[in-house]
Write a protein that binds this DNA or RNA. Structure first.
Lengths: 330, 330
DNA sequence: ATGAAAGCGCTAACAC
DNA sequence: GTGTTAGCGCTTTCAT
C-alpha cells in the first residue's frame, strides 16, 4: 500500500478542484451530474475512504461509542456487549470496548482515552471504588451508567435492573417449599447493587415470616471465587438448606461448589442463581434463577445513545429500571 | 461542558506560545523546568487531553485495533475478545469490535469503517463467503486472519488451530470404548475449517479400523440449531452410539438435544464436544471435548500487532498453528 | 457550477 | 529555551 487517496489527490488526478470532489462525494447538489460520476468512479478505483480524523477535527461527531465493562467472559456482559455491538453496527457507530476489571484506575484511564478519540458517548458499569466522578473524566461525552450507579458530576442517564421483587420472591418460594434456613451470598454494601439485593433478600425473609440469621449471610467483594468459598462454607457446615445468590459470578461460583461436591441444587441445597447463563437450563433438570433482561437493557442503552442528544440527555439525571424475573426450574 | 482545552487555549491562558505547551506536554527536553510545571498544572486543571484526531492527521499511528468476530456470545469468541481487550488496554491500544454475523457484506462494511478511522491493524475471523479479498478493503491495515483462512490480496498473518490430531484421536478413543458407529456433525466444506475437521474425522475412522458411514456424517452451515437438529436425527434414529462435533455452536446445540431428551452424553450417546465452555466441566460428570488454546491464540495475535510492524508483517503471508487438546472427562 | 481561502489541533522544522 | 510557520484532510464561507 502506497498512500491513501484523498480528495486532493483525486482532484489533482482529475485536474479539478478538491472542492468539487468533496461536493461530489458528499452528494452536494451543486455538481454537474457528469462530473460527479467521474469523481465517484475514480474514487472507487483508488479505494478512497473518508478520513475520519479530518472530519473529527472539523467538529463532526466521531460516531465512537465507548463501552466499559468489568469483563466480557461473564455471559451476562458478553450478551450485553453482543447486543451493543450489533446495534452499533446497525447505526454505523464504532464500539470501543475497554475492560475495567472493576479497577477504578483502569476505568479512569479508559475514560481518558475515549476522550482523546472524542467518543460521543460512553456506556459503563461503574467500578465499585469511587473513581471518575470528576467532570474532567467525561468531557462532553454522554454518560450512561449501567447496572450500578455512582454519583458523578455530569448529567448522566442510568439503566438499572429492578431485581427486588425477583429476589424477595425467591425467598418466599423457598420458604413455601419448607426451607427455614436460607443462605444468601452477595456483593458487599460498597456496591449500590450489593445493598439493594441484600435488602431485597431481607424483605423476602420478613415477608416469608422467617427470622433472619446473620451467619447465613455472606457479603464480600463479588467474584467467582467468593461464591465458591461462601458456598463451601454453607455446605460443609450444613448451615442452610436453601441458597440464594445476588450476583452473576457469585452464582456460578457457588454452583460450581455444589457440582464439585455432588450436591443437587434441588434436593440437597435448594439453589436459586443470579443471571441466566445458557447452561442453567440443562444442568440437573434446570437451575432456578433470577433472570436479567439483558436485551432490553442493551436496547435501551442504544436508544439513549442515538440522537437527538439534547433531548435524551436533558439537564438532569435520568434513571430507568427494568424488571428481573424469577425463573423456577426443576 | 463548554469547550475542550487545547494546547493553544492553554498557551493563551498562560501567555506563552502553543509550541512551548506542546513541548512541555510531550516531555521535550527544551523546556524550562519551571515552565513545564506551570503548563502541566494548568493542563490538569483544565482537564486537557490530547486530540487523537489531530495527531492522526499528522500521520501518527492511531493505536486503533479492529476485531471482527461472527458474534461474541459464543464463549470461545467471548474469551478471545476478552483476552484481546485486556492486551489492548495494557498496550494502550483501542479495541474496536465489529460483529459480522458471518455476513460478508457486514464484514466489508466494518473493514471500510476501520479504514476510515485509520485502524493500524485488524484481526478477523473471515466470513465463509468470499468477500473482502480486494486490496482496497484493507488499505494499510495489518491483517491477521483468525481460525479460518481465506486468500486475500494483501500480506497477512494467520493464526490457526491445529485440531487434526485432537479430532482423529477422539474417534480412536471412542473406538477403544467399543463404539463402531460414530457420528460426526460439522461445518460444511465451504469453510476451510469445515474441510479440515471432516478429514481429521475420516482419518480417525481409518486409523481406528472402522468403516466410514456417510449417513452418520452431517455437514451444513454451522449453527446451534444445525447442531440440535443433526443430533436429533442421530438420536431418534439411533444411528450411532458415539458422536463427535466439529464446531463450537454445533457442539452446544447437539448437547442441548441430548439434555432435552435425557440422554446421557456418556452412556447413551458417547459425546465429544468442540471447544470448552466452562459448564462442560460440571455437566453430568464432565463433558469430553476438543479444547481450543484460546489464550495462546489471543496472546499471539497481540504479539503480531505490536511493533515492529515491518518485521512482523514481512512481505509474505505467515501462518501459525496452535494445537487443540482432546480432553476426556467422566 | 466551480474554485480559493481559512481553520479545526497538533508537531517537525526552522528561526532567534 | 522559546516562538513562528506550515501542513496533515476536510468542509464552510465567500467569491467568481
Amino acid at each position: 500500500m502506497t498512500k491513501r487517496a484523498t480528495i486532493k489527490s483525486i482532484a489533482q488526478d482529475l485536474g479539478i478542484s478538491h472542492m468539487t470532489v468533496s461536493r461530489a462525494l458528499s452528494n452536494h447538489p451543486n455538481v454537474q451530474k457528469e462530473t460527479r460520476e467521474t469523481v465517484l468512479k475514480r474514487a472507487r478505483e483508488l479505494g478512497y475512504v473518508k478520513n475520519a480524523a479530518a472530519k473529527a477535527m472539523r467538529g463532526d461527531i466521531t460516531g465512537i461509542v465507548g463501552l466499559l465493562l468489568p469483563n466480557i467472559v461473564n455471559e451476562f456482559y458478553a450478551r450485553f456487549a453482543n447486543a451493543m455491538a450489533h446495534a452499533c453496527d446497525e447505526n454505523s457507530y464504532h464500539l470501543i470496548i475497554h475492560l475495567t476489571n472493576d479497577d477504578p484506575e483502569i476505568e479512569q484511564q479508559a475514560l481518558e482515552r475515549l476522550r482523546e478519540v472524542q467518543a460521543m458517548a460512553v456506556a459503563m458499569v461503574p467500578t465499585p471504588g469511587t473513581s471518575a466522578s470528576d467532570v474532567n473524566s467525561f468531557g462532553s461525552m454522554k454518560v450512561i451508567q449501567l447496572i450500578r450507579q455512582t454519583p458523578i458530576k455530569v448529567p448522566s442517564a442510568s439503566i438499572l435492573i429492578n431485581d427486588h421483587d425477583a429476589i424477595s420472591n425467591a425467598v418466599v418460594e423457598l420458604a413455601k417449599k419448607g426451607h427455614t434456613h436460607i443462605g444468601y451470598i452477595g456483593a458487599d454494601t460498597q456496591l449500590s447493587t450489593g445493598r439493594a439485593r441484600l435488602s431485597a433478600f431481607m424483605d423476602g425473609i420478613r415477608e416469608a415470616g422467617l427470622k433472619s440469621e446473620n451467619q447465613l449471610i455472606y457479603t464480600k467483594s463479588p467474584s467467582f471465587k467468593m461464591g465458591q468459598e461462601s458456598a463451601k462454607d454453607i455446605c460443609t457446615q450444613k448451615k442452610a438448606t436453601g441458597l440464594i445468590c445476588g450476583g452473576f459470578e457469585i452464582s456460578t461460583g457457588a454452583l460450581s461448589t455444589l457440582m464439585e461436591n455432588k450436591l443437587s441444587p434441588h434436593t440437597d441445597v435448594c439453589f436459586i442463581g443470579y443471571g441466566d447463563p445458557s447452561f442453567f437450563e440443562w444442568l440437573d433438570g434446570g437451575i432456578s434463577t433470577v433472570r436479567l433482561p439483558v436485551d432490553r437493557l442493551a436496547h435501551e442503552t442504544i436508544e439513549l445513545i442515538k440522537p437527538p442528544w439534547e433531548e435524551a440527555t436533558a439537564s438532569t439525571t435520568r434513571e430507568k429500571k427494568f424488571d428481573a424475573d424469577l425463573i423456577i426450574r426443576g
